[in-house]
Amino acid sequence: MEAMDVSMIGKGLIIIGAGIGLGMIGGRAMEAIARQPEATGKIQTAMIIIAALLEGVAFAALFA
């Protein structure tokens, strides 16, 4: 295998991991909102910040 092939596999694994992470974040946030509807704003804010950081890592992996 060439170095390019190995790096593409690594990038793919990072993207898959980011997708799984985003799904988990969304699911857990929905569970938290269902348990405490009055905390919806705080939960959504934290979820969006974490999701943005995770997407940043995924994009960095794609273009690095």
Rank of each mutant, 00 (worst) to 15 (best):
G10M: 11
M47I: 11
G12Q: 12
A3E: 09
T40R: 12
A29T: 15
A46W: 09
I15R: 08
L62F: 13
I14K: 00
G41V: 08
A46V: 10
F63Y: 11
L13N: 10
A29L: 14
P37L: 05
I25R: 08
L22N: 08
R35A: 06
M30W: 13
D5K: 01
A34M: 06
A29S: 15
T45M: 00
V6I: 04
G56K: 06
A64P: 06
K42G: 05
G19L: 03
L53Q: 03
I48P: 01
E31T: 15
T40M: 09
I43Y: 07
I16E: 11
M24C: 10
E2T: 13
I33P: 04
L13M: 13
F63N: 06
A3F: 05
E2V: 05
I33D: 11
R35H: 02
A51M: 14
A58G: 10
A32R: 02
I20Y: 09
I33Y: 01
L53F: 14
I33M: 12
I43F: 10
I49G: 00
G17Y: 00
L62W: 12
L54V: 06
A61K: 07
E2Q: 03
M47F: 05
E31D: 10
A18N: 03
M47V: 09
R35Q: 05
G12S: 12
G21P: 04
E55L: 11
M24H: 13
R28I: 01
D5S: 02
M4T: 08
A60R: 15
A46D: 10
M30D: 13
M4E: 06
M30E: 13
K42R: 10
I20L: 09
G17N: 00
I43P: 10
A32N: 04
D5Q: 12
R28D: 08
I14N: 02
A29Q: 14
R28Y: 09
I25F: 10
L54H: 04
V6W: 00
A52S: 12
E2R: 13
E31V: 15
I50W: 14
R35S: 06
M8I: 12
G12F: 10
P37K: 02
L13D: 11
M47A: 15
I15T: 07
M47R: 07
I20R: 01
I43H: 10
A3N: 07
I20M: 09
D5V: 01
Q36I: 09
V57R: 01
I49H: 02
Q36F: 01
F59H: 07
Q44N: 01
L62M: 09
R28P: 01
G17A: 01
A46G: 15
K11G: 06
I48S: 02
M4I: 15
E31A: 13
G23N: 03
M30I: 15
I14H: 04
A32F: 05
G41M: 08
A52Q: 02
I49Y: 00
A58N: 09
T45R: 03
A61I: 00
A51L: 08
R28H: 11
A29V: 08
S7L: 11
M24F: 12
E31H: 13
T40N: 02
M4A: 08
G56R: 04
D5Y: 00
K11H: 01
I33A: 04
